[in-house]
């Protein structure tokens, strides 16, 4: 059992709930669209031999949303400030989906921000011939299936914590809506905000990770990103995993991060 420290980091967007766990080399971890209520299995795995620092981004769970975060530019400025406040500029990072897009955006405008980045199924590019599924044109049930392939993980994500009273249930329902809203706002109506033109500025080493069953950002995007990044490798697709690879295959993603930081 690893000790988990939960603290609030002051930023211009308000206090950011941040989880820290484990001992060892520091790895920053940016969650995906599901948000972050507590450290995930992948974070706990990494914490065996790393110090994992995992902030919950505004609107994605215990950190309240910030109405001034309207555009990708706003988010990049916020993320830049957050890395400063966490003292993690120049560290190794892992980021998933929309967060990986934001991390790449920050790495493009502030090349020293990251030493390396494991980018798990980043959004941010658009290929009209291989657009992927429009997540928000699906029912909530189908959205969940496209995000996470493993039924047990999906069930756990949707479960209601035991002992919640009526007020707690209402707050949980609202929180889940707000995190869907926040994630959607970063890729609406299309995920392309011009990142392709900026990726050549990224100095960090990037490892691109995909799940073989990702239909939201198809695995073919790995090579597209790699072709635009100065220093990138594409890890072999993780079999059976969907878009939220770190939830579907926590040990596999942790192993890639370990390999990257070894």
């Amino acid at each position: 059992m690893v000790d988990i420290e939960r603290r609030k980091v002051a930023t211009g967007s308000g206090p950011v709930t941040t989880f820290e766990l484990g001992e060892g080399p520091v790895v920053g971890f940016l969650h995906g669209p599901a948000g972050l209520d507590e450290p995930t299995a992948c974070m706990r795995d990494l914490a065996v031999d790393h110090r994992v620092v995992a902030p919950c981004l505004p609107g994605f769970g215990p950190t309240p949303g910030d109405p001034t975060l309207r555009t990708v530019h706003d988010w990049v400025v916020f993320l830049s400030e957050l890395t400063d406040r966490l003292g993690l500029v120049g560290s190794r990072w892992v980021a998933s989906s929309v967060s990986a897009m934001l991390a790449l955006e920050l790495a493009a405008v502030r090349p020293e921000a990251f030493r390396s980045l494991v980018a798990v199924a980043p959004t941010g590019l658009w290929d009209p011939d291989d657009p992927g599924v429009d997540l928000y044109s699906l029912s909530l049930t189908d959205q969940a299936v496209h995000l996470v392939a493993d039924e047990e993980v999906r069930t756990a994500l949707a479960a209601l914590p035991e002992g919640l009273d009526t007020d707690g249930l209402v707050e949980l329902g609202v929180s889940r809506y707000v995190r869907r809203r926040t994630a959607a706002s970063l890729v609406w109506p299309l995920p392309d905000h011009g990142l392709a033109d900026r990726l050549h500025r990224v100095a960090a080493e990037v490892v691109l990770v995909w799940g073989s069953e990702d239909r939201i950002v198809p695995p073919s995007y790995g090579e597209r990103f790699a072709g635009l990044l100065p220093t990138a490798t594409v890890a072999p697709p993780i079999a059976g995993a969907a878009h939220l690879v770190a939830l579907d295959a926590p040990a596999a993603v942790a192993a890639i991060v370990r390999n990257d930081s070894g």
Binding site: S137, S139, V170, A183, W188
Partner: peptide
Amino acid sequence: YPPFADPPGYQTEATVRAGVEGMV
């Protein structure tokens, strides 16, 4: 098609809260 009627963020937080309260 129902998903077209409820993209995340279209409803205000107050409306969502009222809806969740009703569901609960």
